[in-house]
């Protein structure tokens, strides 16, 4: 019994840290290619990014007092982020963001639409005085 209490006491700070440091609202899916992460619960933080559930390829993205970051420039894929107070052992739960860029077909459709409108605009101004 006393051993169990001792174990709980040892775990308590870790449990508190893991509970108090965490992410705010994060997007589940990102189409634009950029998104913001926000976190809270400590004065200094460590933010980690990985691609697999076991965080084998994890790398520290940020270490410091800021409570958020802008993520951009990632290729399509599933990305996992977790946060902790700097110096703590325990990490928060992972938050997962799936980056899935718009399709190139849609992108070029808008590009061509824009090019068409722009061409009409140039012609309208260039020929404008004569037409008027």
């Amino acid at each position: 019994m006393s051993l169990a209490i001792l174990c709980l006491l040892c775990l308590a700070p870790v449990g508190i840290a893991a509970d108090s440091v965490g992410f705010g609202t994060t997007p589940e899916r990102d189409r634009a290619g950029f998104f913001a992460l926000e976190w809270h619960g400590a004065e200094r933080y460590e933010l980690e990014q990985a691609t697999g559930p076991a965080h084998e390829d994890a790398r520290i993205l940020y270490r410091g007092p800021d409570a958020g970051t802008l993520i951009s420039g990632l290729p399509n894929g599933e990305y996992r982020f977790r946060i902790r107070a700097e110096g703590d052992e325990a990490w928060s739960d992972s938050t997962v963001v799936i980056v899935e860029h718009h399709g190139l077909g849609r992108a070029f459709l808008f590009f061509l639409l824009g090019a068409g409108v722009f061409t009409v605009l140039i012609l309208a101004i260039a020929a404008g005085r004569r037409l008027a």
């Binding site: 420039g73 990632l74 992108a107 070029f108 824009g114």
Partner: peptide
């Protein structure tokens, strides 16, 4: 951030015009 150098970045292509 490799996509920032990608000339076929879809949202950026939509953004141009």
């Amino acid at each position: 951030r490799p996509e920032l150098l990608n000339l076929l970045f879809p949202a950026a292509i939509m953004f141009l015009f």
